[in-house]
Nucleic acid binder design. Structure first.
Length: 226
DNA sequence: AACTACATCAACCGCCCCCGC
DNA sequence: GGCGGGGGCGGTTGATGTAGT
């Protein structure tokens, strides 16, 4: 072998960019059946033209059943701030203290919301400390300092997922066409099911749904479809 | 209504660590 | 002990959405 390390995959033969619903479903279906012992080999086995790392990231950050999506609560944000004081930018470490939250999500929230908020807080602390002496706790300051900026947009995607499952429940759990999925491109979070519709967390229901998807996608007969 | 600036977040990149050989 | 491969992690980017003018 020459200098450096081999690329994790052949970059010319893998697809990049946003994941499609079909890819998501293929990945979910494969992992449900076979697990993810070997990420490098997984794309090929699952019939995906993706890099193993990309699959892993997609699964961990988006498709994993226990991933929690939607708004961060003030408590969670407070926790992140506190943990960041201890761990710095060790996002995975911070994520391990926040069940259902991913390092990527926390990193994004930190970079987009919390960093700015901290600046505001520090300013306020500085200002109030110059006029009075008590500024130790920042609890309750969040919404005051920048309440207009804290409405995470991910709630929209979450709404779509909820809509999707409401649809599924209303139509006795099987859409008439796979095309229905297109308008719910982010439905892949089977995860949220258990949160909003506990009955669908039932393994049997999940399995039923996956089986249906596999048939619709042709995964049961031909892995190379698409 | 059109354009611009800003915010958000999914995904990629590349480095590092760990483990098996 | 050294090497290579795979997985994990943190930084960064680019596409998309939204607010402001």
């Amino acid at each position: 072998m020459g200098k450096g390390r081999a690329a994790c995959c052949d970059k010319t033969k893998v697809k990049k960019g946003p994941w499609t619903t079909h890819e998501d479903l293929k990945l979910i279906s494969f992992i449900q059946k076979h697990g993810h012992a070997n990420w490098r080999a997984l794309p090929k086995q699952a019939g995906l033209l993706r890099c193993g790392k990309s699959c892993r990231l997609r699964w961990i950050n988006y498709l994993r059943p226990d991933v929690k999506r939607g708004n961060f609560t003030p408590q969670e944000e407070d926790t992140i701030i506190n943990l960041h004081r201890s761990f710095g930018n060790r996002w995975s470490k911070i994520a391990s203290h926040l069940p259902g939250r991913t390092d990527n999500e926390i990193k994004n929230v930190w970079n987009t919301h919390l960093k700015k908020r901290l600046v505001v807080m520090k300013k306020e602390e500085y200002n109030s400390s110059s006029s009075s002496t008590s500024t130790s706790s920042h609890e309750g300051q969040y919404m005051d300092s920048s309440s207009t900026t804290f409405s995470p947009t991910s709630s929209k995607a979450n709404d779509q997922v909820i809509d999707f499952w409401e649809y599924m429940l209303d139509t006795s759990s099987t859409p008439t066409s796979i095309n229905n999925l297109d308008s719910y491109s982010k439905m892949a979070t089977i995860s949220t099911t258990s949160e909003h519709h506990p009955q669908l967390a039932d393994e049997y229901e999940c399995q039923k749904w996956l089986t249906y998807l596999e048939i619709e996608l042709g995964l049961t007969t031909n892995n190379q479809q698409e």
